[in-house]
C-alpha cells in the first residue's frame, strides 16, 4: 500500500490498491466517521456486559417458554397470517413491478431515432424509475404506518405495505436484470427488423426470466422477516402478538412466539434457497 506513486521499473505491485493521496484521504475520512459515530451512539461494550438492567430478568423470564395449547394456537395463527402476508405481498409486488420494470429498462440502441422519439421514450422511463424509487426508498414499516392510518389495524395494511415496498425493490432489480442481459441476441433481432416490443419479448425477457424467479423468491424471504416486525405498528402478523405479550410482561409467551418465528424464517430461507439453486439459467 505504501508503494510510492511513481512506477518502479520491473515491479508490478500486488493486488491491493497503491498509495495515492485519494486513498489516504479516504482512510482518514473512514477513521473520522468511526470515532464520531462511536461517540454519537454512546457505544459501550462494557455497559452491555455489566449492565444490571432488566435484560437479565427478561431473558431468564422467558424460560421455560409457554407451551400451553392456547399459546401454541395463537402462535400458529400469527405465523400463518405472517406467511400469508409475506406471500401475497411478494406476489402483488411482483405483478406491479413487472410493467414498471419493463418501462424502466433503457434500450441501449438509439441509433437512427430522432430527438422527439428519444424524448418520447425518456418520459415513461423516468416516470417509472421515479415511482419505483418512492416505493423502494420508504421502508415497509413506514408504509405500514401509512396504511394502518388509511385502512385500520390488521394484516391487510401490512400486506399492502409489503406489496408496495416489494414492488419498488423488485421493479428496480427486474429492470437491472433486463438491462444486464447479454445484448447481442437482442441486437441481432433488431438488425433483422424486430420492433422494440418484439425484441423485448423474444430477446430480453426470456434471458431475464429465471433471474426474475430467483429475485421474487428472495423478496418473499425478505417479506417473511419484515412481516414479523410490521405487527409492532399494528399491521398484523405474529409481530402483533409479540408486542401484545411484551406489554403484558408475558415473557414465556414471547419466548414461544419468537422461537417459532425463528424456526419458520429459517425454514422458508432454506426452501427458497433450495428452489433458487435448482433454477436453470
Amino acid at each position: 500500500m505504501a508503494s510510492p506513486p511513481t512506477e518502479h521499473p520491473g515491479r508490478m505491485g500486488g493486488a491491493i490498491p497503491r498509495f495515492s493521496w485519494k486513498t489516504a484521504l479516504a482512510v482518514l475520512v473512514v477513521l473520522g466517521l468511526t470515532g464520531w459515530s462511536f461517540a454519537g451512539t454512546k457505544f459501550d461494550l462494557v455497559e452491555l456486559f455489566t449492565s444490571t438492567r432488566p435484560i437479565e430478568k427478561f431473558i431468564s423470564g422467558m424460560f421455560p417458554p409457554d407451551l400451553s395449547a392456547a399459546t401454541l394456537r395463537t402462535t400458529a395463527i400469527g405465523l400463518l397470517e405472517t406467511f400469508q402476508m409475506s406471500f401475497l405481498g411478494a406476489l402483488i409486488g411482483a405483478i406491479a413491478a413487472f410493467p414498471l420494470a419493463a418501462l424502466a429498462t433503457a434500450e441501449a440502441a438509439t441509433v437512427g431515432s430522432s430527438r422527439r422519439e428519444r424524448l418520447l421514450r425518456t418520459v415513461p422511463y423516468r416516470l417509472s424509475r421515479f415511482v419505483l424509487n418512492i416505493f423502494r426508498s420508504i421502508p415497509d414499516i413506514l408504509w405500514a404506518l401509512v396504511f394502518v392510518i388509511a385502512v385500520g389495524l390488521g394484516p391487510f395494511p401490512g400486506t399492502l405495505a409489503l406489496a408496495v415496498h416489494s414492488a419498488g425493490i423488485l421493479g428496480k432489480l427486474y429492470s437491472e436484470t433486463l438491462e444486464a442481459v447479454p445484448v447481442r441476441p437482442v441486437e441481432a433481432l433488431r438488425a433483422t427488423g424486430a420492433s422494440p416490443l418484439q425484441s423485448f419479448l423474444f430477446g430480453r425477457l426470456p434471458q431475464a426470466m429465471s433471474g426474475f424467479t430467483s429475485l421474487t423468491l428472495y423478496q418473499w424471504e425478505c417479506n417473511i422477516r419484515s412481516a414479523t416486525v410490521l405487527g409492532l405498528v399494528g399491521a398484523g402478523g405474529i409481530g402483533q402478538q409479540i408486542i401484545i405479550s411484551m406489554n403484558l410482561f408475558d415473557y414465556p409467551k414471547v419466548a414461544t412466539l419468537v422461537g417459532a418465528t425463528i424456526i419458520v424464517v429459517l425454514l422458508v430461507d432454506r426452501f427458497s434457497a433450495a428452489v433458487r439453486k435448482r433454477l436453470v439459467y
Binding site: R184, E187, A188, T192, F202, G203, M209
Partner: peptide, 14 residues
C-alpha cells in the same frame, strides 16, 4: 437482411 454471427447470438433460453 439476414445475419449470422460468430457467437450465434441466439436466445439461449428459448
Amino acid at each position: 437482411v439476414g445475419t449470422i454471427y460468430q457467437a450465434y447470438n441466439l436466445v439461449p433460453q428459448l
